[in-house]
């Protein structure tokens, strides 16, 4: 690999300490005998979500999401002029840059984007395109920059949600908000919103797979679909149904997050009052 002259480099060959674990157990059960998962959730439970819009002061729009330990931040710049004249078109362009932070996954990632990150960038772009009114900004592009700060499963779904909230925060006109959900399928179970261990454990074995789906709830259409692993047709169809339900459950949360951010932008005084009221009665969604 060519030496990266633009960064401070360490030794060329390094190995992660995870390969040297004393007691690396083999395939372990993802679901306990009583039907609960390793973290105590049921099969259809989504982990607690925290979302906030307007976190990057320099960007037109930004958002931050935490799904349990998965942390994703997104900033939207635009609409602004296309960088290259060849990209002039009568509809706007969405350009997405997706990157895992080097320390975000158990095995350290490189600084240069690898094929998985480039593929995810393309998928997120195609997930968001149906929802954005591209004809409203011809000859312009909207840049979406996503960094996954910690990956504990469902990173792609979290990124899609985060970027659609950031787009609304940037006041880019949209037809609908894009929600997303991940499902891990094993021979016996279908686990919603898997953690990193649940997503990667024995994923290459037969009848195991992961499905990520991006969904537009108001117009009831799927804007993105990614399936990995080895699954039968019926399982995939059932998985799509369950994913759709999961996406619809997340939708009210996104709605609430956007509502609050809009309120805080335009009525800061009232927001302080509301916040102090909430301090006395915390709400759960």
């Amino acid at each position: 690999m060519p030496v990266d002259k633009k960064r401070i480099t360490g030794p060329e060959v390094t190995q992660s300490p995870l390969y040297f674990l004393e007691d690396s157990s083999g395939i372990s059960q993802l679901v306990n005998k009583d039907g609960t998962r390793k973290d105590g959730r049921g099969e259809n439970d989504i982990r607690p979500i925290f979302m906030k819009a307007g976190v990057v002061s320099q960007a037109q729009g930004s958002a931050y999401i935490e799904i349990a330990n998965t942390k994703v931040i997104c900033a939207v710049y635009g609409p602004r002029q296309v960088l290259r004249r060849e990209d002039f078109s009568m509809t706007g362009i969405l350009k997405c840059e997706f990157k895992f932070a080097t320390f975000s996954c158990p095995f350290r990632r490189k600084f240069q984007p690898d094929v998985e990150e480039k593929e995810f960038a393309l998928i997120i772009e195609q997930a968001l395109s149906p929802a954005v009114c591209l004809h409203k900004f011809p000859k312009s592009q909207v840049d979406i920059n996503i960094r996954v700060l910690e990956n504990d499963g469902s990173a792609l779904a979290a990124s899609i949600i985060c970027s659609s909230v950031a787009l609304t925060d940037a006041a880019v006109e949209m037809y609908d908000i894009v929600t997303a959900c991940t499902l891990r399928i094993t021979p016996e179970h279908m686990l919603m919103d898997p953690s990193y261990t649940e997503e990667t454990n024995s994923i290459n074995c037969e009848s195991n797979g992961v499905v990520t789906m991006g969904f537009l709830p108001s117009i009831n259409q799927t804007s993105s679909l990614l399936q990995r692993g080895h699954l039968s047709c019926d399982k995939v169809l059932k998985a799509l149904q369950i994913c759709t339900e999961g996406c619809q459950r997340i939708y009210p949360l996104i709605h609430e997050c956007i509502r609050r951010s809009v309120k805080s932008k335009y009525r800061p005084a009232e927001q302080d009052k509301e916040k102090s009221e909430e301090d006395q009665n915390p709400s759960k969604g």
Binding site: P130, L216, Q221, T222, L231, S232, Q241
Partner: peptide, 26 residues
């Protein structure tokens, strides 16, 4: 007839019924 990978391409969206039909055809 098992699926080992699937991805949706293109800048438009699909309804779940269309996806159902497409997968059966696939």
């Amino acid at each position: 007839g098992d699926f080992t990978g699937m991805v949706k391409k293109g800048s438009s969206s699909l309804s779940n019924d269309s996806i159902h039909d497409m997968l059966v055809t696939a």
